[in-house]
């Protein structure tokens, strides 16, 4: 079976400095894959490279087709939703307008409306606040909005950039539960990038460890959880 996403020898640059050094990464269809790493390891860069926001070399294939070098607005149209770091919501637009933007590239209006209703069942708070500006939501609600906006694309691949950032542990647990539900119930493939290894490994099936732009380790999530050195440096027990 062709993996949904495959990166081979991926290198990425900010200006002249190289941030990713020849990564190989595979995301299997229907699974949750996590990339763990500390600040500055290159996690955000990896996602930005996949969605075409920065210059890369090497190969990125989506469902077998090369997507490297394509513009972000074309990559979205293939079904890749990128929920960026810091959520990237539109603070002065209403919650509903934010969600409608998520479905911007879709033409199937009826289905969009149905998806909106489904998404409201995952995130009831967004329905309550559908007419308030996104900027007035709490941090957790904004993260929910960002994920919901990604789902409005009805994506084949949902990429989440540190959804746990700056949120209370209870909220994070809630979010991860929803991510799992989205994956299990709707069959959405998820590529998650995280610092919070404990929570992330729990929802994922496969994990990569990224350090200063290199993948240093990878394997099934529960194997990585057992691995001593990973436990010490990432899980802290």
């Amino acid at each position: 079976m062709v993996p949904l996403l495959e990166a081979r020898n991926l290198e990425a640059y900010y200006g002249w400095s190289k941030v990713l050094h020849g990564l190989d990464l595979t995301v299997e269809k229907g699974k949750v894959t996590v990339v763990l790493g500390a600040n500055g390891a290159g996690k955000t860069t990896l996602l930005r490279a996949i969605s075409g926001l920065i210059r890369t070399t090497g190969e990125i294939r989506f469902d077998g087709v090369r997507i490297d070098g394509k513009a972000p607005e074309d990559i979205v149209r293939l079904g890749i939703a990128h929920v960026p770091e810091g959520r990237g919501t539109f603070p002065n637009l209403t919650v509903l307008e934010n969600l409608r933007l998520g479905a911007y590239t879709r033409k199937d209006k009826q289905e969009v409306r149905r998806d909106l209703d489904r998404i409201y069942t995952y995130f009831p708070v967004l329905k309550q606040k559908s007419n308030s500006p996104a900027g007035l939501l709490s941090g957790g609600e904004q993260q929910m909005l960002a994920i919901a906006r990604g789902l409005m694309l009805r994506p084949r691949l949902l990429m989440l950039d540190e959804p746990s950032l700056g949120l209370a542990p209870v909220v994070v647990a809630d979010l991860f539960r929803i991510v799992r539900a989205i994956n299990e119930d709707d069959g959405v493939t998820v590529l998650l990038v995280e610092q919070d290894a404990v929570g992330a490994l729990e929802v994922s099936q496969y994990a990569y460890l990224l350090e200063t732009g290199h993948i240093v380790s990878s394997g099934p999530a529960d194997e990585l959880r057992q691995n001593d050195s990973i436990r010490k440096s990432y899980l802290g027990y």
């Binding site: 969605s51 926001l53 513009a71 972000p72 607005e73 979205v76 149209r77 939703a81 990128h82 960026p84 990237g88 919501t89 539109f90 603070p91 002065n92 637009l93 307008e97 409608r100 933007l101 998520g102 911007y104 590239t105 906006r149 694309l153």
Partner: peptide, 24 residues
């Protein structure tokens, strides 16, 4: 209108707009 909404989105956050497929 959808295009009007997209234009307001671009004003607020061009990068996020590109990520939802708006041709900025």
């Amino acid at each position: 209108t959808k295009v009007g909404l997209a234009m307001r989105a671009v004003v607020e956050n061009p990068t996020s707009s590109r990520l939802v497929g708006v041709k900025v």
